[in-house]
Write a protein that binds this DNA or RNA. Structure first.
Lengths: 153, 153
DNA sequence: GTTGAATAAAAATTCAAA
DNA sequence: TTTGAATTTTTATTCAAC
């Protein structure tokens, strides 16, 4: 039942302006799901829905852009597809990819707003990642290239 | 004073994990800004910060991806830099750009989650945008290429 | 227009239960 | 593991002041 409810929540949130969890409770009721605010609060956390300010200045729930486009996972997969080599020099990381792919990957990395990553420059097949310090650079590399990891739990 | 505070909030939020507004109040205090939670609540709304679920399962404030990276404006500027030609055939839009730039632009367009845009395919210098219908295609083109517009107000 | 104190409103969590 | 009732915590807003 939970699965269906979660799906319905996504639908509802993307279709109509849901301002509060209570409102969502009511909308779900209309859809045949009887739950309380407590449950909805958990659902929202699980779905990673966010509360954004709409054009009318009021809050509403929304599906985050990051969830719909650039996830770490899609980035890793894409990177794995075009990856050529990787090197680190202190706080700098240089990643080489197949020709023509650097900009797209660079942009994806940029979009992730990784902590400790100061900036990204991409040419045709090379991406330069400028990190805050050596440690941040190491962590970033790990994060990006760790695409063999099994989901936890 | 408010301006500086807003900027500092952005900084704080992107640098450290701020879980609640009270925490932000304290962090601001350390930075020399004395404000209450009420003000922070307004600031957060104004900055359109969102509360997201972090990797540790706890909530934290964040700058929304759409606001921090791909705005329509940055996309238009970038597109203007590399734009070569544009054509529409019914619900399809084909944009030609300088060699090696199609993927990055395609990805940016994709990230914007434009309504009516079903999908994007990018090669080396060509981007194909598949829209819901002719109208959506026309509107998308307008949106993308309208880089001569003065900021309102 | 901006703010804080107080308050209302909303959301997260605890705790017990199934 | 999932849930609701109750509760706590957090956040938004009201209202007065500046």
């Amino acid at each position: 039942m939970k699965e269906q409810r979660l799906m319905r929540i996504r639908e509802l949130v993307s279709q109509q302006e849901i301002e509060t969890q209570e409102e969502l409770v009511r909308a779900l009721e209309d859809s045949g799901f009887a739950v309380t605010q407590a449950t909805i609060s958990r659902d929202i956390k699980e779905l990673q829905l966010i509360k954004v300010v709409g054009t009318n200045g009021r809050y509403k729930y929304a599906i985050p852009v990051i969830a719909s486009s650039v996830t770490l996972d899609t980035l890793r997969r894409k990177l794995a597809d075009v990856f050529v080599s990787q090197a680190r020099a202190q706080n700098l990381v240089v990643i080489k990819v197949l020709p023509g792919n650097a900009q797209a990957i660079g942009f994806m990395i940029d979009s992730m707003n990784q902590a400790g990553l100061l900036g990204t420059i991409a040419g045709d097949d090379t991406i330069l990642l400028v990190c805050q310090d050596d440690d941040a650079a190491m962590r970033l590399l790990e994060t990006l290239l760790q695409n063999d990891r099994k989901p936890v739990e």
